[in-house]
C-alpha cells in the first residue's frame, strides 16, 4: 500500500527581523505514523506549527497539505490542532464552545458527546470554560481537535504546565488515539514523552533540521554492551583489541563497550568465555532517545 502523504514542508524559512526562527526546513508526514517534533525551547517548533496552521506568515519556502490541491483553511478542517494554551471563549460552556467549533469545521454536532466522554469531561459539559482547571482545559482542547475525526492530530507541548496526574491523563489519551491509527504530530521538548508514543522524529535546533526519520535510525549506532566480570583488566584488554568495538569506558565496576558493527549478545558471551572470561553481568542496549538526542545536538 503506497503511503499517503499528509503534509509536505519544503525549504520553509521564517525570519523575525534579524532572527531566523526556522531555517530551510523540509520534511514530510505520512499517514499512520506518530511523529515527534523535537527540539529545545526556542528551536522553532511552535513557529513551524504556526506556519502550517495558517497563523504565522512564512518568509519563504512552501508547504502543502494532503495532495496539495486544497487551500490551507479547507485542509485545516480535516486537521485537529492545539497549539500552546487551550483557547476558548471563557464565558461559554464546554458544550457551547464545541458547538461553535463544529460550525467552523462544518461537522455535525452529534460527535460532541462521544469526544467529551473520551476525554472525561461529559459530566462537566455545562460548566463555563473559565471554571476549568488547566488540565481540563487541555483535555477540552483535545476533544475539540478530535471533533472532525481528523486525518492528523497536531499537539504542541500538550502536557506543559500540568501536574503529574494531568500529564498522565493526557498521555493516556494520546496513546489511545495513536492506537486507533490516527496520524499524530507531537511537538515537545520532553523526550521521554516522545519516546513513549512516537515512531518517527523530526529534530530541530535553532530552526535547523538535524534529523528526520524513524526513531531507531537517529544515530547510525549498533548499541552498546554493559559488562561485569571478576577480571576487569583482562576484559578491557580483550575488548580494545577487538575490531568490533569503538569507545570503551568503565565506571562503577561496569564496562560499557560501544559497538561499531552489529554483534549479538550470545556471540560476545561465547567469544569471551572461550578467552577465559566469565561474565557476571551482560546487557545489550540501544541508546535512549534522550542520549541520542544529546549526542546529536552536541555533535553539530
Amino acid at each position: 500500500m503506497p503511503l499517503k502523504t499528509i503534509l509536505t514542508v519544503n525549504n520553509l524559512t521564517k525570519k523575525f527581523g534579524h532572527l531566523t526562527a526556522v531555517k530551510a526546513l523540509s520534511f514530510t508526514i505520512e499517514k499512520g505514523n506518530v511523529y515527534g517534533l523535537l527540539g529545545p525551547n526556542g528551536s522553532g517548533k511552535s513557529t513551524t506549527l504556526g506556519i502550517i496552521l495558517n497563523v504565522v506568515n512564512r518568509t519563504s519556502g512552501t508547504f502543502s497539505w494532503f495532495d496539495g490541491n486544497t487551500s490551507t483553511h479547507e485542509a485545516l478542517k480535516k486537521v485537529g490542532a492545539i497549539i500552546e494554551r487551550p483557547n476558548f471563549y471563557p464565558y461559554m460552556t464546554a458544550i457551547k464552545n464545541l458547538k461553535l467549533v463544529c460550525k467552523i469545521k462544518e461537522v455535525p454536532e452529534s460527535r460532541i458527546e462521544e469526544k467529551l466522554k473520551l476525554v472525561g469531561l461529559w459530566e462537566r459539559r455545562d460548566s463555563k470554560f473559565r471554571t476549568y482547571s488547566l488540565g481540563m482545559k487541555q483535555r477540552l482542547a483535545i476533544a475539540s481537535a478530535l471533533l472532525n475525526d481528523p486525518e492528523i492530530l497536531i499537539l504542541d507541548e500538550p502536557t506543559n504546565g500540568l501536574d503529574p496526574a494531568g500529564i498522565h491523563q493526557i498521555r493516556e489519551i494520546i496513546k489511545k488515539i495513536a492506537s486507533e491509527g490516527t496520524t499524530i504530530l507531537l511537538a515537545s521538548h520532553l523526550l521521554d514523552e516522545v519516546e513513549k508514543v512516537c515512531s518517527h522524529v523530526v529534530i530541530l535546533r535553532k530552526g535547523e533540521k538535524l534529523y528526520s526519520g524513524p526513531v531507531d535510525g537517529m544515530l547510525s549506532s549498533h548499541g552498546f554492551f554493559e559488562l561485569r566480570t571478576e577480571n576487569m583488566g583482562l576484559l578491557k584488554d580483550l575488548l580494545s583489541k577487538h575490531a568490533g568495538f569503538g569507545k570503551i569506558s568503565g565506571e562503577n565496576g561496569t564496562i560499557t563497550a560501544y559497538l561499531k558493527e552489529e554483534m549479538d549478545a550470545d556471540e560476545l558471551n561465547k567469544m569471551l568465555f572461550e578467552n577465559g572470561i566469565v561474565l557476571s553481568h551482560l546487557v545489550k542496549r540501544k541508546e535512549s532517545l534522550e542520549e541520542q538526542f544529546l549526542t546529536l545536538t552536541k555533535n553539530n
Binding site: 495558517n54 497563523v55 485545516l76 490542532a81 467552523i104
Partner: peptide
C-alpha cells in the same frame, strides 16, 4: 485577548471568512 482568533483560524476559518 482570548486568543480565540488563533484557534478559529487553526480550526479552519480563513482570514477572509
Amino acid at each position: 485577548s482570548n486568543k480565540t482568533i488563533k484557534q478559529n483560524l487553526i480550526d479552519g476559518l480563513s482570514k477572509k471568512e
